[in-house]
């Protein structure tokens, strides 16, 4: 492949930035699904986070508080989902889709009057002389704190899910809620916590779009990022590090194909645009072939509601 005039350091740095929203949202959804809940409302929660974070930043002038506000906004919306599915036992797929539509509409309503404003900037973390290192300075030490936070969360989630009691409980609830219930765990309460966490992560991802990536508010700003996050969870077969790879792959190809165009590459745009999806298909085929059976680890109770009737 002809990389032409593209500087790989610049490319990697921008793909890390471009992937943050989908990575954060995918990590949140990963935990939700590990707990056995399928929340298709990621897009709605992201855009709620985008507008809430934006509003908080405009009013306080502090982008950090904006991210907190975005997380709270996403979590608040996800609690509606939690109430409907965990208390009223509504169908998760339908509720999740409704949540997306509701979030898109509500955010447009809340966003009235916020068009065209500019939020306070989130600057890169000051690393001093490290930033001037050749290649690594640009790739590793030129980002804002959210980029590092997203990578940190990937590692943290991997550790929590794999090696802690909390992770074991979440997985147990997602694999067999009957068994977890028999052991005395409050299935619905644990799921509620997971849903709120997922909402907060999606909200932060959304806030990253409206505060850093685009720095402004326009209706429908997330433009489908939530759906990509959902796809990445499956692509990652519910493993945090693979979610990171998936997000960087999607984000990377997007950035790469635009850069290739700007640099005047001869590769037709269509091939580049479809390559992430081709890779996803290839990965899914590989996973469902005999070799990858173990890797095909969807939580057994995914999408099933639980009611403690016995």
């Amino acid at each position: 492949m002809d990389f032409g005039a593209i500087n790989p350091a610049v490319l990697i740095a921008s793909l890390m930035m471009a992937s943050v929203p989908i990575l954060l949202a995918a990590l949140g959804e990963l935990v939700v699904e590990k707990a056995g809940v399928l929340n298709l409302g990621v897009e709605g929660m992201m855009i709620m986070g985008a507008i809430c974070g934006f509003m908080v930043t405009i009013h306080t002038g502090n982008p950090f508080l904006g991210f907190i506000g975005g997380a709270l906004g996403g979590a608040a919306l996800s609690l509606i989902f939690a109430f409907l599915t965990q208390v009223l036992l509504a169908n998760q797929v339908a509720t999740g889709l409704a949540l997306t539509m509701f979030g898109l509409g509500l955010s447009a309503l809340l966003g009235q009057g916020y068009n065209g404003l500019k939020p306070a900037a989130t600057g890169p973390v000051p690393f001093g002389p490290l930033t001037d290192l050749p290649f690594f300075g640009k790739v590793l030490f030129s980002h804002d704190w959210v980029v590092y936070f997203s990578v940190f969360m990937t590692g943290a989630l991997w550790y929590v899910l794999k090696a802690t009691r909390l992770g074991l409980i979440i997985r147990a609830v997602g694999e067999s809620h009957e068994a977890a219930h028999a052991l005395g765990y409050k299935v619905n309460r644990i799921r509620l916590g997971a849903i709120a966490f997922g909402g907060a992560m999606a909200g932060m991802g959304g806030a990253y779009i409206s505060l850093v990536r685009v720095p402004q508010w326009v209706d429908g700003i997330t433009a489908g990022a939530g759906w990509i996050a959902l796809a990445i969870v499956v692509f990652a077969s519910w493993r945090p590090w693979r979610a990171l790879i998936g997000a960087y792959l999607f984000g990377g190809i997007t950035v790469l194909q635009l850069n290739l165009q700007a640099a005047g590459s001869a590769i037709p745009v269509e091939y580049l645009s479809m390559s992430p999806y081709l890779i996803t298909i290839a990965a899914l085929v590989w996973m469902s072939s005999g070799k990858g059976k173990a890797a095909h680890n969807a939580p057994a109770a995914l999408g099933q509601n639980f009611h403690a009737s016995r």
């Binding site: 471009a18 929203p21 990536r213 700003i221 997330t222 433009a223 997007t254 635009l258």
Partner: peptide, 9 residues
């Protein structure tokens, strides 16, 4: 219309 993609471009 896709602000994130337009910004990336």
């Amino acid at each position: 219309f896709d602000p994130a993609k337009e910004a990336d471009a």
